[in-house]
């Protein structure tokens, strides 16, 4: 479990599930560029994400709070993104969590399945400028914390 920023006191965590470190960094960059101030927790594959969400020990240790939003890649080692999404939707506790699928795929199959499971689907564009713009539009829809005053980027 890697953490870009660790702070248990910050309740509103964004869970980013992404195996590619470049994509991880670029996504975080795009979020920060859009002044998102939430703590961002990164899971490097599907199983890590599931453990973070459903592990009992972690829940017993008082870390039972849920993320405010999940950014989910689809092509993941071990447990792929659609499986993670299905698990989230099957659990009563997590059923209503906002999930944004971020993927390279523009396969209709992936797009249809994601939408069926109630996730927002975003294709990761090669053009970073375009990607950042898409992220900007997405976070407007969700209750993420945006630093309105300070334009500085938290790392």
């Amino acid at each position: 479990m890697g953490r870009a920023t660790m702070s248990d006191k910050t309740k509103d965590v964004i869970l980013l599930v992404e195996d590619n470190p470049d994509d991880r960094d670029l996504t975080i960059r795009a979020l920060r560029k859009n002044r998102v101030v939430n703590e961002i927790v990164v899971a490097r594959d599907g199983s890590e994400a599931l453990v973070w969400l459903f592990d009992e020990k972690r829940a017993a240790a008082g870390h039972a709070s849920l993320p405010t939003m999940i950014l989910l890649d689809l092509k993941l080692p071990k447990v792929n993104g659609l499986e993670v999404l299905a698990a989230i939707r099957e659990n009563d506790r997590t059923r209503n969590l906002p999930v944004v699928v971020l993927t390279s795929s523009d396969e209709e199959r992936d797009m249809g399945e994601s939408q069926r499971l109630g996730a927002t689907y975003i294709r990761k564009s090669v053009d970073f400028t375009e990607f950042r713009e898409v992220i900007r539009r997405v976070i407007k829809e969700w209750p993420v914390q945006v630093d309105e005053v300070d334009g500085s980027v938290k790392k």
Binding site: D22, K124, V126
Partner: peptide, 21 residues
């Protein structure tokens, strides 16, 4: 094709994204 769309595009995203950075 799936592999191309993921694996070929991912480096391009890195090239473009970090260049932009």
């Amino acid at each position: 094709a799936y592999s191309i769309s993921h694996d070929l595009r991912a480096p391009l995203r890195s090239i473009d994204g970090f260049s932009q950075a």
